[in-house]
Write a protein that binds this DNA or RNA. Structure first.
Lengths: 337, 337
DNA sequence: CCTCTTCCCGAAAGCGCTTTCGGTAATTTG
DNA sequence: CAAATTACCGAAAGCGCTTTCGGGAAGAGG
């Protein structure tokens, strides 16, 4: 492959000139630039990124902190859509993504430390747990950063319009004639969870609908199993709801399972609307009606906010909230008379 | 943060000694090592990875080439399980993963070029398209590499025991009494697809079962839609099969859809067994019986093969085939009399 | 007391690249 | 034709770290 020295030797120019030719400086003649470029092509020359980063203090790398919750990592059906879109968007600007391990040789270190070690130009955190110390540390650092699916006053963030989404869901059920509408909620330590219960409560209030005791059940961290258990509780109730807005598709899947196991049908006996629009819900029975989060849009917005900061080489604080849409499928029906 | 020079100045030692202390060289006394380490801790010193890589020629980074097929990328339900497990395994050894873009500033370059540019220690390719020029180029380079889900004579590979899996599937259907067993296959340009039809044919032959005309249908690239279309064809047949072994879970989902749309039931009218055991099939109706590929094991094996090469700093060629298991759920039933 | 080891430490070169700052040659201007 | 630009090029320092090699001091052996 060779270095810039070899290139200098071959072409007879100094390494300074070679470097300039390679980097399109204007103070090198077209003729010599052409010679150098050709020689570079012939010897398959490629600049060494480490050397470049070392002297320019720019690494063209973005550190990714991904959800570590219950070992899902990149398998997370919602987050992986975001990261994929983020990757595409940043790629076009020449950035690489680096998934850092938390272990530097023997010693283990924090994400922030590792990112500093790697000298990344920016950080994206896709991890909904705001209590995570690691996340806190990252948000307080001075490296350009964007955090997804979480709110914060002192760094750039992008997330879906969760309260509006919740409102849409409740209104939709209302228009189908439902008046007994429950909510299976995500834990409010997670912003998205909290925002959706807020939206639910707001919508109910606006529609002048009471939230019956037991109609708001916290199902924790968005898993199928937790959704199922939450639905069990609703089904136990003296007067169970006729419709339920579930704060996440995976929980909704669990909820449907619970309904089925009780010998009831969705949507005939009970309507269910989810949140996220993950891939698999198109294939379950019934196909799940849900509030769709636009992962493409979220990823792109995140990329945009981060790239801005990285090119300006300064931290900024901007909030971007992405609109959601209701996707009508087959899990909701008019209330039965 | 500071550099090693600052550390030298503060402690009064030379940078040589500081470096040695940090790297556990034995020719530095415990006393001075302690002083240096403490100073390092106090000033939050972190070594610069680029500088280290530059002088050691080791980057502690692994380049990842991921499936680009139909824009799925990290959303691929099977591959993302592998990469997640691979990530865990390599992380423990101190390696970071880097997802390279194919664009270096203005100029765009190949994956291989980019990986050389980044000076990665090794490469993992998770992309089943062996015809991809980029993949070819990577496999022919001299960088340590491991390729997943694909066979090759001249680099380390790991994949599931596809022919055995196919055999298990067919035998299972046979034991349920089925004799009219069809196969919805993946394209044979993809190794896994080819191996599974081979296994299917072998098994049928061993069981002395004929493969009726039209019973082996190529469904292309493992998508739900293609699976559906393939099943349509089977249903068109004069004497349709009573059971079908589908080469991928997503295709199986499509196949089930097709069966349902024809007013038939799974498994009562027709049994279906899939391949992969992706997350979502536990939630469809009926729950899909399938051949499970152990993504954890595959990812770990890949990590192991790659790490071996990277520490030896030489390319090796080892083949690892991972056993599969049959997961019995609800999509297969005894043939009806 | 002298020589030979052993133990610690540091000077310096090197990894591959960028960028400032001059300097010479060619060109333009008056 | 002399003076002032302009166009091109290169020396050298610097980015932050590792590693070879040699040397001084201290301890061991005779």
């Amino acid at each position: 492959m060779g270095t810039i020295y070899d290139l200098a030797k071959i072409t007879g120019f100094s390494i300074t000139t070679v470097s300039k030719a390679l980097n399109n400086y204007k103070d090198v003649s077209e003729k010599t630039r052409a010679k150098i470029l050709q020689a570079a092509a012939e010897m398959d020359y490629l600049p060494n990124a480490h050397a470049q980063s070392l002297s320019t203090k720019k690494s063209w790398a973005i550190g990714v902190m991904f959800s570590e919750a219950n070992e899902v990592g990149m398998k997370h059906p919602f987050f992986n859509g975001i990261i994929e879109s983020f990757r595409h968007a940043t790629e076009e600007h020449g950035y690489d993504l680096i998934f850092a391990s938390r272990n530097l040789r023997n010693r283990d270190m924090s994400y922030l430390e590792h990112f500093k070690h790697r000298a990344v130009d920016g950080i994206v955190v896709i991890c909904s747990d705001r209590m995570d110390e690691q996340v806190q540390e990252l948000m307080q650092s001075d490296i350009p950063i964007v955090v997804v699916d979480m709110d914060s006053a002192n760094c750039s963030v992008v997330y879906s319009d969760n309260t509006e989404g919740a409102r849409m869901a409740v209104n939709y059920l209302y228009e189908l004639g439902h008046r007994h509408i429950a909510h299976i909620a995500g834990d409010s330590s997670i912003d998205a969870g909290a925002a959706r219960v807020k939206g639910y409560e707001l919508a109910m209030q606006t529609l002048d609908l009471p939230i019956h005791p037991g109609y708001l059940v916290n199902a924790g961290f968005f898993s199928v199993e937790e959704g199922k258990q939450a639905m069990e509780k609703l089904l136990q109730l003296a007067s169970p709801p006729t419709a339920v807005f579930v704060a996440g598709d995976q929980m909704a899947i669990g909820a449907i399972e619970a309904v089925h196991e009780h010998g009831l049908r969705v949507p005939e006996d009970i309507s269910i609307i989810g949140y996220d629009d993950i891939e698999m819900i198109k294939y379950i029975t019934p196909k799940l009606t849900t509030i769709r989060q636009d992962t493409d849009e979220i990823g792109e917005a995140a990329a945009e906010l981060l790239i801005e900061q990285m090119t300006a080489k300064e931290r900024r604080t901007e909030r971007r909230v992405i609109p959601v849409t209701l996707i009508e499928r087959a899990s909701c029906a008019p209330v039965k008379k």
